[in-house]
Structures are given as structure tokens and as C-alpha cells.
């Protein structure tokens, strides 16, 4: 059902383009840095989350989650470009299952996102965080799960859209709300019921919660137990991939 060669070549193509585009490379690292140091640094003087953490430290897992969110969505949304410029048609007439295409795309978004998250994770000494090797490895493992889930979600979004015109709508109405309602910048516990409900439907919430478990295992700033976080990430990944596969399988009959 899944052709390894197709999955491999879809990843290789995206990876090649990722390292070739210097502009994108710079901006993907600039965004988390700005949030971490300019927003986080500034807010540190105003709020103190307690539990022995500064605000900048508190949002560190959230900034990792944000890095993954933007990178994974952006990577999946590039499918719309492929549709606009036709390459997707060339991929769709190749003898590969639609599931392979979806898995290949989701994995390429995942790998690129995890690389970026790993670079941001290396900033921990500048924030005065003590990170054990186990914590670092767990954080990367969680990043992988989260990135896969978000990439697959991005593919579902992309499958509804035919042109890049809707890009800013996706950013404003999906990506930014996902970011703010994920516990990245403040705990979701204290939000009004309706927003709390939305945050519970957001896979990013569980990813960031799991990252908090991994990076600050003793701080007690979590909303859910770790197994619940991981379980939800795994299940959502599988569900999103299957839905994306079905979306791709649908014949265009309109």
C-alpha cells in the first residue's frame, strides 16, 4: 500500500528545496527567536508563572511547538503551490498510492520541522534551563509526533484549496488561533469554557503539554498526564493521515 521509493523521493525533494531557500531558512528561525526573546523577554518583567520558572522559560516548550506548527503547516501548504504550478498532476498520474503521497508529504514536513525544533532546543543554556540528555531526546521524540500530526492536518487543509490566495486566511483563522489556544503562551486551564473546549480539540495543545513534561519534568505546569498527550498525538496523526489519504483518493468529478 505504501511505496517506499515514492515516500523517499517526496522527502528528498522537499529537503533539497528547504536547504536551498536561504530566505525561508532565515525566517523560520527568526520567528521563534522574536517570540522567545522579544515577547517572552519583555513579558518576563511583568508576569511570573511561579514554580521556579521565569516567563521566558515557561514559554520555551510553547515556542518549540510554535516552530513546529509554522514549519509543518507551511510545508504541507506547499502542496497548493504544487497544484497551482501543476507538479501535483504529474505526481498523481504516477503509479503510487495516494496514501504514499500523503505519508511522504507528512514525513517531509515532519523531518524539516524536527530539524528546526532541534536547533531552537539548543538555545536552552541561554534561558538558564538545565536540560538532561533524556529530556532533550524526549523533547525531540515528542516534536516528531507533534510535527507529523500537524503536517497531516496541513495536508487536509491544502486538499480543500486550489490557490495560494487563501494563505493569509489560513494563517489568520487556523494557525494563529491554534497557536494561542494551545497553552504555548499561557495555561489553558484558566480560559473561558468555550475557548478551553477549542484548545482541547487542538493537537498542538497536547504536543506542547508533552514538551512541558519532557523539558520541565518536575515543574508541575502540565494540563494532562503524559500518556494521554502521547496517545492523542498518535491517534490524531493516524486519523489525519487517513482523512488526507481519502481526500486525495476522491476522483475529481466536479
Amino acid at each position: 500500500m505504501i511505496e517506499v521509493n515514492a515516500v523517499y523521493v517526496l522527502i528528498a525533494r522537499d529537503f533539497k528545496k528547504f536547504i536551498r531557500e536561504k530566505g525561508r531558512l532565515i525566517s523560520t528561525f527568526a520567528r521563534p527567536l522574536i517570540w522567545l526573546f522579544l515577547v517572552g523577554g519583555g513579558m518576563s518583567r511583568l508576569v511570573s508563572p511561579g514554580m521556579g520558572l521565569s516567563y521566558m522559560q515557561f514559554i520555551f516548550p510553547g515556542i518549540l511547538g510554535m516552530t513546529i506548527l509554522f514549519s509543518a503547516i507551511f510545508s504541507s501548504i506547499s502542496i497548493i503551490w504544487d497544484k497551482e504550478f501543476g507538479l501535483m498532476k504529474a505526481i498523481l498520474v504516477a503509479p503510487v498510492s495516494r496514501l504514499s503521497i500523503v505519508v511522504g508529504k507528512a514525513l517531509s514536513g515532519t523531518i524539516i520541522s524536527v530539524i528546526q525544533a532541534a536547533v531552537i532546543l539548543m538555545l536552552f543554556p541561554f534561558l538558564g534551563i538545565k536540560l538532561s540528555l533524556l529530556s532533550a531526546v524526549s523533547a525531540l521524540a515528542v516534536s516528531f509526533l507533534l510535527a507529523f500530526s500537524i503536517s497531516a492536518l496541513g495536508i487536509i487543509i491544502a486538499s480543500f484549496l486550489e490557490s495560494m490566495e487563501s494563505f493569509s486566511a489560513i494563517m489568520n483563522f487556523i494557525v494563529m488561533p491554534m497557536f494561542f489556544l494551545s497553552g504555548a503562551m499561557y495555561p489553558v486551564k484558566n480560559l473561558p469554557e468555550i475557548l478551553k473546549l477549542i484548545s482541547k480539540l487542538n493537537p498542538l495543545t497536547y504536543g506542547i503539554d508533552a514538551l512541558k513534561h519532557a523539558i520541565f519534568p518536575d515543574a508541575g505546569i502540565f494540563d494532562f498526564p503524559l500518556p494521554a498527550d502521547l496517545g492523542i498525538l498518535i491517534i490524531s496523526s493516524a486519523v489525519f493521515v487517513i482523512i488526507a489519504g481519502i481526500m486525495f483518493e476522491r476522483k475529481k468529478t466536479k
Partner: peptide, 20 residues
Amino acid sequence: TLDKDLTAYENLMFHACLYD
């Protein structure tokens, strides 16, 4: 329907791998 950000060789390689 070519990928403009890849070279000619890479475009053909992409396609060849896709077709196994």
C-alpha cells in the same frame, strides 16, 4: 508541470524514483 526550483537532472531523478 516541472519543479522550477530543482535542476533538470533532479526533475528527472524525482520522476524516475516516483516510477520506481
